[in-house]
Simulated assay, not measured.
Amino acid sequence: MIEQNNKDLEQLTQGNEKKPFYKKAWFIALVAFVVIGGIGNALGTGNDKKDDKKPETNETANNNDKDKEAEKEKEDAKEKEKDKQKEPGFGSVVEFDGLEIKFNEGYEFTVLENQFSELNGAEVIKIPVTVKNVSKEVNGLNSFSVDVYGPQGVTLSSVYHYFSDAEDNDVYSIAGIKALRPDVEVSAFMHVLYDGDGDYFISFDNFLKRVEVKLNIKK
């Protein structure tokens, strides 16, 4: 009888024993809610960060493009400056129509004296040149292939044919060089009408090739 009562008491005690709170349904549900909510917030925050970064990325890309364009402009400017420095001038040798023509330093000024010319008394620039025939046959410079532009960019009247005779020490005007044998080199002068200080351009053009020389003249 006593043993039966003990069993009944034990069962009653076990039935009345409370479960730990962390095993209860309401606590599990609460934890699940918090966890799900945290994951949702994390995902939302990640998307927000991505969205925030997009404008920065685009702006950075635009800045990079601008930097590249600026760098390209600088490089183009440098190339143009190099081209200017390479532009033929005094001391340069140009090849045209089988001739090598070098424009030497030491130009002088003279006066055109021809009473039958409307240019009589005009000032003329006397530019020393060296001419060499680099072709394999007799060759000379065709004066009709030469044009001269003054500082204003306007074609100047040709005057070198007024100086076609041999000068001192057998140094000719370039117009006086009728023909040269292969590999022959001579010194001469090119006479250009003076039209003020500035850049003069000597243009050689035979419709197949065009060469231009820039000469800065100061009186």
Rank of each mutant, 00 (worst) to 15 (best):
A25Q: 07
V148G: 09
N41T: 06
N6I: 02
Y172M: 11
V159Y: 02
N133L: 06
G176S: 09
G38F: 07
S135I: 02
T45N: 10
A188E: 06
E95S: 13
K126N: 07
L12W: 11
Y200A: 02
F116A: 14
K18M: 03
I101G: 06
G153E: 02
V186C: 07
Y172T: 12
S164E: 02
H191A: 06
V35N: 01
V35G: 05
K82G: 11
E108L: 13
G198C: 04
L215M: 08
D48I: 12
Y200V: 12
V184N: 12
I202R: 01
G38V: 06
E73L: 13
S203R: 12
D147L: 08
A166H: 00
L43Y: 09
E17V: 14
T110F: 06
P88W: 00
N114L: 05
D83M: 12
S135Q: 04
K72Q: 07
N139F: 05
F103W: 13
F116N: 14
M1W: 04
E212I: 14
K209M: 05
K53M: 15
K209R: 08
S135L: 01
G89L: 00
S157C: 04
D168W: 09
V213Y: 09
Y22I: 11
G91E: 00
G44R: 08
K68M: 08
F96V: 09
S135F: 03
E118W: 07
L9I: 12
K136P: 13
T57P: 07
I2A: 13
K18R: 09
N114W: 00
A42E: 02
P128I: 03
Q14M: 12
D205V: 02
K54I: 13
S92P: 12
D48E: 13
G196H: 04
N58C: 15
A122K: 14
T130K: 13
L215R: 09
E3K: 12
A175L: 01
E123F: 07
A77S: 04
K50R: 12
F27V: 12
G40E: 00
P182C: 06
A179R: 15
D8A: 15
V154Q: 11
K126L: 04
G198D: 01
V192C: 01
N6P: 01
P128S: 08
I174G: 08
P182A: 14
K23Y: 10
N104E: 09
I28N: 07
K80L: 08
G37A: 06
K219R: 10
D65R: 11
E118P: 13
N142T: 04
F21E: 03
V148I: 00
A179D: 08
E167F: 05
L43H: 06
Q11W: 09
G46M: 09
A32W: 00
V124Q: 01
